[in-house]
Amino acid sequence: MVRGKTEMRRIENATSRQVTFSKRRNGLLKKAFELSVLCDAEVAVIVFSSRGKLYEFSSSSMLKTIDRYTTHSKASYSGKKPAEQSIQQWKSEAASLAKKIELLETYKRRLMGEGLGSCTLEELHELESHLQKSLSNVRVKKQWKLLEKISELEEKERMLLKENALLREKVSEYLQVNAPERVVPDVQACQNMEVETELFIGRPGTSET
């Protein structure tokens, strides 16, 4: 079945417009990628949706491609005064940066759970995916930090045990040299000794008969 030709006018239905935008956008970016690979061309594509969301593709570096375009644009409009060209360039860059800042602020608010009423289902899924990925990265970093701290404590414990053993050895050598006749009691033997005591419980002045 042959598809009919699509009339080039704005799609009034919001859902159909969003679906068409997603399909055409993906097709455009795919064609740009194919053109850059097949023809070894430097390609850059920038798309803003009706909601102000940015989509882009660059075969190398977007900033380098924009700088190259700006250089060629200056050469094309060399008849203009240098000051006028500079002002227009700065205005263009300022507007672009302001737009990017606005998009980043909007995205930041959405990540904080604010302004979600205007989000589409696709955008909410994307936000959820990014949050889950960020949470996973935080957990991995936290686990790595805990393991690092445990390793430091274990190393500190080994050093303390080593120092303790050295101190015991020095004390033993000192006693052998300065007091060889002294008998150093064994700690374990002392703990195992039974001490006999006489214990009487009663009023003062009385004694067990």
Rank of each mutant, 00 (worst) to 15 (best):
A14Q: 08
A14N: 06
S16L: 14
S16M: 12
R17Y: 06
R17I: 04
Q18S: 09
Q18F: 02
V19L: 10
V19I: 15
T20K: 11
S22K: 01
K23L: 13
R24K: 13
R24D: 10
R25L: 15
R25I: 03
N26S: 15
L28A: 10
L29T: 01
L29N: 01
L29V: 03
F33M: 10
E34P: 00
S36W: 00
S36E: 02
C39F: 13
C39P: 00
C39H: 13
A41N: 12
A41L: 13
A44H: 01
A44T: 12
V45I: 11
I46W: 04
V47T: 05
F48S: 08
F48L: 14
S49F: 02
S49P: 01
S50C: 03
R51Y: 04
R51G: 13
G52T: 03
G52I: 04
K53V: 05
K53R: 15
K53H: 08
L54Y: 11
L54T: 06
L54N: 05
E56G: 01
F57Q: 00
F57R: 00
F57G: 00
F57M: 02
S59R: 01
S59W: 01
S61V: 03
L63K: 07
K64C: 07
K64V: 09
D67A: 10
R68M: 05
R68I: 01
R68H: 07
R68K: 12
Y69N: 06
T70Y: 01
T70F: 01
T71R: 12
K74C: 06
A75R: 09
A75M: 12
S78Q: 10
G79A: 14
G79I: 09
G79S: 15
K80P: 01
K80G: 08
K81P: 02
A83W: 09
A83I: 14
E84W: 05
E84N: 03
E84S: 07
S86C: 05
S86I: 04
I87T: 09
Q88T: 11
W90A: 14
S92M: 08
S92G: 08
S92Y: 05
A94P: 00
A95R: 13
A95D: 13
S96I: 06
S96C: 10
K99N: 15
K99E: 15
K100M: 12
K100L: 14
K100D: 11
I101G: 04
L103Y: 02
L104A: 12
L104Q: 09
E105F: 04
T106M: 11
T106K: 07
T106H: 06
Y107S: 04
Y107V: 03
Y107F: 08
Y107A: 04
L111V: 08
M112L: 15
M112T: 04
G113F: 03
G113P: 00
G113K: 06
G113L: 05
E114I: 03
G115Y: 05
L116A: 07
G117V: 01
G117E: 07
G117H: 02
S118C: 06
S118T: 10
C119D: 07
T120H: 06
T120E: 06
L121G: 09
L121M: 08
E122V: 14
E122Y: 12
E122N: 14
L124I: 09
L124S: 06
L124P: 00
H125P: 00
H125T: 08
E126S: 13
E126I: 03
E126P: 00
E126D: 14
E126T: 10
